[in-house]
Amino acid sequence: MARAPVRISMPDEAKKGEIVDIKAILRHPMETGYRVDNVGKKIPRNIVTDMTVTYGGVEVMRWKLQPGVAANPFIGFSTVAIETGELVFTWTDDTGQVFRESRMLTVT
């Protein structure tokens, strides 16, 4: 199934010096590792442990996630438009899977 596990909202364009609001959500079960299945076997932990956002190659946001974060982690943050560049959103989970998505921000 063609999945779109990430949804991101941010403007395509911003004026130099303007504060840009960014929102992102990733589809992920955030399995805590504390639950058991219906035969009593422990369900292995699989949470997203890190989320980072780089803007023009520079890290502008980092989020350390814990097992208490609900499924499908959502975050909203802001950054300042400095120059035209690419924002790269990266999530890494316990299984080593990496989810990556990028958006261009054009600064006028």
Binding site: M1, R3, A4, P5, R7, S9, K23, I25, R27, F74
Partner: peptide, 13 residues
């Protein structure tokens, strides 16, 4: 909020 609402992930699918 169409981004914060997790149900929209399924709508995208």
């Amino acid at each position: 909020d169409d981004i914060a609402n997790p149900g929209m992930l399924w709508v995208s699918d």
